[in-house]
Amino acid sequence: MPSLKTRIASLALETPLLTASGTFGFGDEYASLMRLEGLGGLVVKTLTLKPRSGNPPPRLVETPAGMLNAIGLQNPGLKHFLKAELPHLQNRNIPLIISIAGDTEEEYVALAEALDRQTGIAALELNLSCPNVKKGGILFGTDVVILESLVSKVRSVWNKPLIAKLTPNVTAVADLARAAATGGADILSAINTLRGMVIDVATGRPLLGNRFGGLSGPAVRPVAVKMIYEIFEATKLPLIGMGGIMNTDDALQFIMAGATAVAVGTANFVEPQTIPQIAAGLNDYLEKAGLESLHELVGVAHD
């Protein structure tokens, strides 16, 4: 009997299928539509130290085979999260991965320290697509020195698996992947959204309130698959692949490119059952291929 059980770093998952941060809230929004326990892991929306109100609307617009969003990390902040969200998340029998972001290294570290004292959190994911306000607003994820420094500082206060989520908005993702590995990350995830914009021709102005947004959905998938392929060759760390996964074949592409697990984002909006459907599809695939586990497929696309 094939099994979807997946081991990634020291994380043991029932399936390799996670939710992409920001697309599944804190889980409860989808609880009436699907069995959350069927998820391999729940990556919650990005948490910051202080509450963030987010960007002015419009915050999203559909694009060809995708969508552009600029939510602005709206979230209730750490204090509210610990009191109002973490308890119900801890009670679900599902690996919980907390995505964190900050304006400074200190904010990331403070979050990691506070979360390290909590039980029921399986891993931390660093959202690196945020400007470092002390370094002139350079995004944490786009500079190898800044990235390595941040990862190592969080590493020193966080004792469980640490995931660095790489941004695709860089020249050489492999360099950033190596920097995250040197900093002490256990797992790399990729990709975050691609930067883009839409102009409203009726007004001649940017359509999004924030002018720029992050592109996601099937439109970005070939870019994402290629980045996973490159990162797989650049580091030995296990990878979580994401970017426009809509179905089983899409998930398989990421696994074959080198991902041990995958995350589903935009597809949740279109079809809330996407993750359970892909789980069933992967199971069928393994049976037909006569394989025991998806681990046998990781990186097979490489020479």
Partner: peptide, 17 residues
């Protein structure tokens, strides 16, 4: 009315002030 992605409250995409 506002552009929407998830429709169930998860994504915060349709927020208004």
């Amino acid at each position: 009315e506002e552009n929407m992605a998830c429709g169930v409250g998860a994504c915060q995409g349709c927020s208004v002030l």
